[in-house]
C-alpha cells in the first residue's frame, strides 16, 4: 500500500529525515517509536503533505501513485488521513459544517453523491458513539476551546467519518488519560480491515496495549534504526532508546 524509500526532508535549513524507508501493506498496523526530535512527526506530516517540509530526496509510493506529487487534499481523497498531534482550532466554523464539507469533498472525489445536512446527522449519530462525544460538540467551532482530550477525540471522530485506507496517528495518545486513550484506540481498532492500514506514531508503549501493532520501528536521527514485532515496544519501554542510537539503518522493512 505504502512504500517509502530513502526519504530525506528538511524544514528550513535543518535536515530531519535522513533516508527513511518503510513498507506498509494492507491490513497492517505499524508503530513508529523513537526519542524526541527523531523525525517521527516530520514523517507523519510529510506523508500528509504539509507544505512546511521540503522533501529533498527519496520517494513515497501509495497504491501505485507518486504520493509526493499529490496535493494534501488529493491525498485525503485517496484515503490518507493524519490525526494531528496538535489539532488546529478554527473559530467560526462549526464542527458539523467542517465534517460534512470534508465528508462530501471526499465523496465527490469518488464520484459519489453529496449528503445533505439531515442525512449527515444520521451518519454522525453512529460515529459520535465511537468516540463517546455529545451531539452538542458538533455545534461548537472546530477544536476551539476544546480540552486536549476533546481535540484528540475530535481527530478520531474525523477519522471515523472519513474512513481512510491509511490512517496515520501522530502522538494521538500524548496527554490522554486512560479512558480517553481507550476511546482513541477503539476508534482505530473499529477501522481495522484487511484492506486498510495504520501507522501509529507514539512516544509510549502504553497505547500499543490497546492498538496491537504488527510491526514496531524505531526512528532515530531521521532513519529507521530497528524494526521488530510488538515485543520490541516492550523492550524499548524497559531499556529506553540509548542502546539503539548508532545502530545501522535497517533499510526497507520486509516482513
Amino acid at each position: 500500500m505504502l512504500t517509502i524509500t530513502n526519504l530525506t526532508a528538511t524544514v528550513g535549513d535543518k535536515q530531519i529525515l535522513n533516508g527513511t524507508s518503510l513498507t506498509v501493506r494492507a491490513g497492517e498496523v505499524h508503530a513508529i517509536m523513537g526519542p524526541n526530535g527523531s523525525g517521527k512527526s516530520t514523517l507523519a506530516q510529510v506523508i500528509a503533505g504539509h507544505p512546511g517540509y521540503e522533501v529533498t530526496g527519496g520517494s513515497i509510493s501509495y497504491e501505485g501513485q507518486d504520493l509526493l506529487e499529490m496535493e494534501p487534499e488529493e491525498r485525503a481523497h485517496a484515503g490518507v488521513f493524519l490525526a494531528f498531534q496538535y489539532p488546529i482550532e478554527i473559530p467560526g466554523v462549526s464542527n458539523a459544517y467542517f465534517l460534512r464539507t470534508a465528508y462530501n469533498e471526499v465523496r465527490k472525489s469518488r464520484g459519489e453523491p453529496e449528503v445533505d445536512p439531515m442525512d449527515f446527522l444520521d451518519v454522525m449519530a453512529e460515529k459520535l458513539k465511537v468516540v463517546e462525544m455529545d451531539e452538542a460538540m458538533l455545534q461548537r467551532s472546530v477544536n476551539t476551546g476544546f480540552s486536549g482530550g476533546e481535540k484528540k477525540r475530535n481527530e478520531i471522530l474525523q477519522m471515523a467519518v472519513l474512513e481512510p485506507k491509511l490512517a496515520i496517528l501522530d502522538e494521538t495518545d500524548s496527554g490522554l488519560d486512560i479512558d480517553a486513550l481507550r476511546i482513541v484506540a477503539d476508534g482505530v481498532n473499529k477501522l481495522r480491515r484487511p484492506d486498510r492500514a495504520a501507522i501509529v506514531v507514539t512516544h509510549y508503549q502504553r497505547l500499543l496495549n490497546y492498538i496491537v501493532p504488527d510491526f514496531v520501528h524505531v526512528l532515530a536521527g531521521g532513519r529507521i534504526v530497528k524494526s521488530g514485532g510488538k515485543e520490541l515496544a516492550l523492550e524499548l519501554e524497559a531499556k529506553g532508546y540509548d542502546w539503539l542510537v548508532g545502530e545501522p539503518a535497517t533499510g526497507a522493512v520486509t516482513a
Binding site: 494531528f84 470534508a102 474525523q158 472519513l162
Partner: peptide, 16 residues
Amino acid sequence: DRMAFYLKSRGIGAAA
C-alpha cells in the same frame, strides 16, 4: 496557513 493545511488534509480543496 496552518488552518488551510488542516482543512486540505481533510480533503477540502485549496479554493474551498
